[in-house]
Design a protein around this nucleic acid. Structure first.
Length: 492
RNA sequence: CGGGGCGUGGCGCAGCCUGGUAGCGCACUCGCUUGGGGUGCGAGUGGUCGCCGGUUCAAAUCCGGCCGCCCCGACCA
C-alpha cells in the first residue's frame, strides 16, 4: 500500500529514515550531521515542550537562558565531566573572516588577527556555566532551593548521526537545581524522574522502565543517574530521559557555597536533568508502521483531518460546506483539526498522505454520509471505522481520540512485555540477546564485568529498575553474588 | 576514526564497461478525465552530468587530484 517507505521487516533503519523524511518531520541539511526540523516536526516538539514546561512549572521550576558559549577553562573544572565531553566539543577560535584570493578565486578564511585569547566552547551541556552563575547568586540557605530550567540547543560533535536520535546539534531542556541537603537533591531528581515517566506514558504513550544507571553508564560528573528507558520496535533500547544527582561535585568545582542557619559555610547539592528532541525519534520508533507515522493524539500537531468526497460540482460544494461547519465546530471544541479541500488529488491519495503524517483520526465526509447526517471516522491505529452522527460530534471525537491514546500505550506495553524475559545463565543470555528485547538478569555490578558483556554481545545494563524486591543469585556472566536483576539490552 | 556506497532537472534513478550534442519515473504547469484507498490520457517547463586538471577532432563516459554526502562499526542523549 504505502509508496516509497521501506517496510520495517526489510530494513528497520531505512524504514526509520524514510518515515522521518517522507512524513515531513525533518530533512537532511547541507551541514554535515545537522538536520532541519520541518514545521510538522517542530509543531510536534512544541506540543511536547509545552506539556513538559507546564509540568516543570507546576513543581516550582522557572525558566531562564544561559549563553551558548562556555569559556574553555570552565569545562576543565570537573574532572569526570571533562573526560566525558572533551572528545565531542566544537571550539570557537576566531571572530572574523577575511576574504582572500587564490588562482583568481575568492574565498574566506579565519582572520588570524581575530584569534581569541580564551577560546570558547559551544555548549555540549550547560552544567559549568550554570553552576558558575549559581555560585554568584547563592549565599544563604534562604537562597535555596534554586530550581531553574532552560530550553536550548546544544552541540556534541559525534561521529555518527541519525535523524533525531543523534545529530551534531539538537534541542533539549536542561534543568539545574541547587539544594541545601543531599536528601533534598535526591528528592528533586526523583520528582523529575516521575515527571518524565508520566510524560512518556501519558503523553507520548511510550511505556518506560525507571531506575538507575550503572557506574559505567551514568552521566559524567554525576553521583547517581536515573533514567527512563524505552524499547523500540526492533527490540533495541532507547534512553529517553535522564535525571542526575550531582552530589557536590560541581559545587566544589565552582565554589558554590551557602551559609547555613547555624552560620557555617557548606557546598550546595545539585541535580541536572534533561530530555531532548530524541523523544521524537522514540515516538516514531515506538508507534510507526509501514504506512508511516502514528502519533499519539495528545501531542499530534493535527489530531483530526476532514476529507470531503465528491463526484460532481454539486457534491463538491455540499461536502466542502459541511466540512467547513464541522471544522469550525471541532476547533471550537479545542481540537487541532484541518479540512483537506484540495481538488487536484483524490480521496485515496489524501488518506495515504495523512496516514503517512500520523494524523490519529480521519473524518470522511461524502454524499452517503451527508444523507445520514453523519461522518465516517477512521482510526490511524487500526483503520477501524465508526459512523458518527453530526449531533454527537465534538464529544464522540474526543472519545475516539482518548481511545486511540490509551490503545497506543497498551499496544506498546504489550510489545515490550512480550520481549522482556528472564535469563539465568550465560549461554541463554548470548542466545537470547540475538533476538533483541530486554533481558532481566542478575549482574554483580562490577564495571569490568559489564564491559566484557558489552564486548561479547553489544548489550549493556540499560537500567537497574527501582522498587524491586531483592532476588539474590549468581551474576549471569561471572557467577559472583548479585543482589537482584537488572535489565540488559542493545541500545541506540 | 576504520569499512562500504553514492554524487546526472526539485526527488529517485538509468546511461559510463565499449567516448559522438543527455534519458526514464515521480513531482511541477496547462487541458480534459477521475474522485468512498496513492485515477487515466494528452501537451509542456526544467539539467554548465559535484569541483579542478589531463587525454582526445570530440568527455557524463577514459585518466589524475580534490570536495561533499549517506550507510555500517567503535564513542555518545
Amino acid at each position: 500500500m504505502a509508496k516509497e517507505i521501506t517496510p520495517r521487516e526489510k530494513d528497520y533503519a531505512r524504514w526509520y529514515t524514510d518515515v522521518v523524511t517522507r512524513s515531513t518531520l525533518a530533512d537532511y541539511s547541507p551541514v554535515k550531521g545537522c538536520m532541519v526540523i520541518r514545521p510538522h516536526g517542530y509543531a510536534l516538539w512544541e506540543n511536547m515542550r509545552d506539556a513538559l514546561d507546564r509540568m516543570f512549572k507546576a513543581t516550582g521550576h522557572v525558566n531562564a537562558y544561559f549563553p551558548l558559549f562556555i569559556p574553555k577553562s570552565f569545562l576543565s573544572k570537573e574532572a569526570e565531566h571533562v573526560e566525558g565531553f572533551a572528545k565531542e566539543c566544537a571550539i570557537v577560535t576566531h571572530t572574523r573572516l577575511k576574504g582572500v584570493e587564490e588562482d583568481g578565486k575568492r574565498f574566506v578564511v579565519p582572520d588570524p588577527d581575530s584569534r581569541l585569547e580564551e577560546e570558547l566552547i559551544v555548549r555540549p551541556t550547560s552544567e559549568t556555566i550554570i553552576y558558575a552563575m549559581y555560585a554568584k547568586w547563592i549565599q544563604s540557605w534562604r537562597d535555596l532551593p534554586l530550581l531553574i530550567n532552560q530550553w536550548a540547543n546544544v552541540v556534541r560533535w559525534e561521529m555518527r548521526t541519525r535523524l533525531f536520535l543523534r545529530t551534531t546539534e539538537f534541542l533539549w531542556q536542561e534543568g539545574h537545581t541547587a539544594h541545601a541537603t543531599h536528601e533534598e537533591a535526591i528528592e528533586e531528581a526523583l520528582t523529575i524522574l516521575e515527571i518524565y515517566r508520566k510524560f512518556a506514558e501519558e503523553w507520548l504513550a511510550i511505556p518506560v522502565l525507571t531506575g538507575t544507571k550503572t557506574e559505567k553508564e551514568k552521566f559524567a560528573g554525576a553521583v547517581t543517574t536515573w533514567c527512563i528507558e524505552a524499547m523500540m520496535q526492533d527490540g533495541k533500547a532507547l534512553q529517553a530521559g535522564t535525571s542526575h544527582d550531582l552530589g557536590q561535585n560541581f559545587a566544589r568545582a565552582f565554589d558554590l557555597k551557602y551559609q547555613t542557619r547555624e552560620g557555617n559555610w557548606e557546598y550546595a547539592w545539585n541535580t541536572s536533568w534533561g530530555v531532548s528532541t530524541r523523544l521524537i525519534g522514540a515516538l516514531v520508533m515506538t508507534h510507526g508502521d509501514d504506512d508511516g507515522l502514528v502519533l499519539p493524539p495528545r501531542v499530534a500537531p493535527l489530531q483530526v483531518v476532514i476529507v470531503p468526497i465528491w463526484r460532481n460540482d454539486e457534491q463538491q460544494r455540499a461536502t466542502i460546506a459541511a466540512g467547513r461547519e464541522l471544522l469550525a465546530k471541532l476547533r471550537e471544541a479545542g481540537f487541532r483539526v484541518t479540512l483537506d479541500e484540495r481538488d487536484n488529488v483524490n480521496p485515496g491519495f489524501k488518506y495515504a498522505e495523512w496516514e503517512l503524517r500520523g494524523v490519529p483520526l480521519r473524518l470522511e465526509l461524502g454524499p452517503r454520509d451527508l444523507e445520514k447526517n453523519a461522518v465516517m471516522a477512521v482510526s490511524r491505529l487500526d483503520r477501524q471505522k465508526t459512523s458518527i452522527p453530526f449531533d454527537d460530534l465534538p464529544a464522540k471525537v474526543g472519545e475516539l481520540l482518548d481511545g486511540i491514546q490509551a490503545a497506543m500505550l497498551e499496544r506498546a506495553r504489550k510489545f515490550r512485555d512480550e520481549r522482556t524475559r528472564e535469563v539465568d545463565d550465560w549461554a541463554a543470555f548470548e542466545r537470547e540477546i540475538e533476538a533483541g528485547g530486554f533481558l532481566r538478569a542478575r549482574h554483580c555490578g562490577d564495571r569490568a564485568c559489564e564491559e566484557e558483556i558489552q564486548e561479547k554481545t553489544k548489550a549493556t545494563v540499560r537500567v537497574q529498575p527501582d522498587g524491586e524486591p531483592d532476588d539474590p543469585g549468581p551474576c549471569v556472566h561471572c557467577g559472583r553474588d548479585a543482589p537482584r536483576r537488572v535489565v540488559f539490552a542493545r541500545a541506540y
